[in-house]
């Protein structure tokens, strides 16, 4: 079926473009502010104006810092965020995949009770568990370390990753599993030979979700990691703004830098994201 450009289709494009513009308004403010000089960004009556020139120094100071002024740049923190986000995302996705597999295809007695109990974990307000969390991590020797924060993100990632994979695997036909069983595969064999190779779209969804959340997470990171050389980029970003005079141009530049990895993932994996959502979350 070919589609000509009739009035209805023009209307659709107009609406899409209109919404795109509305969505981009804050992005424009963000970008324009990051390119402005301090005095310009401070003058809110000039909010909509283009920057008077390309003041790239806010990007430079956000990235490298200004050592003589005691200001640290974001560069090392970007690396910390990767150290944190990549392992935490991978581990929680693997756990979610295994849990989802077992809870969907190997329902042991009580599995139907355990799953909702697990799921409940994603709904708690995290402020309320900060203090026991810090004390527990300190007690097991993980206080103030990246490992501790990775553990935290893995644990609180279990509910959502399990949910997505469990729903995803529900679509995998039982016949496939039966066939592998007849070939003599055990619980792990089935996972490895049948389930895992089918899991890629599920992994894409989980990775995007976990990567975005862990990358942007602030509360745990700021509480659990004290050493500046370990802090992820969200905390460093917040620290670009002082407590008295806030150089928002630099903070905005920093925010754009911080958003690049997530954005890259959206652009590169966007298609698979929708495909994976389709496979995973359609069922309640």
């Amino acid at each position: 079926m070919t589609r000509r450009l009739n009035p209805a289709r023009i209307g659709i494009y107009m609406l899409l473009i209109l919404f795109a513009i509305l969505f981009l308004v804050p992005v424009y403010v963000l970008l324009a502010s990051s390119l402005k000089a301090f005095a310009e960004v401070q003058d809110l009556s000039k909010l909509w104006r283009l920057p008077s020139g390309l003041h790239l120094e806010s990007f430079r100071s956000a990235w490298f810092g200004i050592p003589e002024k005691g200001l640290r740049g974001l560069a090392p923190n970007l690396l910390n965020s990767l150290y944190l986000t990549v392992p935490a995302t991978i581990i929680s996705s693997m756990l979610g995949s295994l849990n989802g597999y077992v809870l969907c295809k190997w329902k042991f007695r009580g599995a139907n009770v355990i799953f909702p109990l697990m799921l409940f974990g994603m709904f708690i307000p995290y402020q309320s568990i900060l203090i026991p969390l810090t004390q527990t991590l300190a007690a097991i020797g993980l206080g103030g370390t990246l490992w501790g924060l990775i553990l935290v993100h893995v644990v609180y990632g279990i509910p959502i990753t399990t949910l997505i994979f469990r729903n995803y695997y529900a679509e995998v036909p039982t016949d496939l599993i039966e066939a592998a069983r007849i070939d003599g595969a055990g619980i792990l064999g089935v996972y490895w030979r049948v389930i895992f190779p089918l899991s890629l779209p599920g992994f894409v969804v989980v990775i995007i979700w976990q990567f975005t959340n862990i990358w942007n997470e602030f509360l745990f990171a700021v509480t659990l990691l004290q050493k500046p050389e370990l802090q992820p980029i969200t905390v460093a970003l917040r620290n670009l703004a002082g407590s008295q005079i806030k150089e928002w141009n630099m903070v905005m530049a920093g925010a754009l830098i911080a958003a690049i990895p997530t954005l890259l993932i959206y652009v590169l994996m966007g298609r698979y994201f929708v495909r994976g959502l389709l496979a995973g979350s359609v069922k309640g």
């Binding site: 003589e68 002024k69 005691g70 200001l71 620290n239 670009l240 703004a241 002082g242 407590s243 008295q244 005079i245 806030k246 150089e247």
Partner: peptide, 8 residues
Amino acid sequence: WTAGGEAE
């Protein structure tokens, strides 16, 4: 004191 005159 993370930025500006206070950090300096």
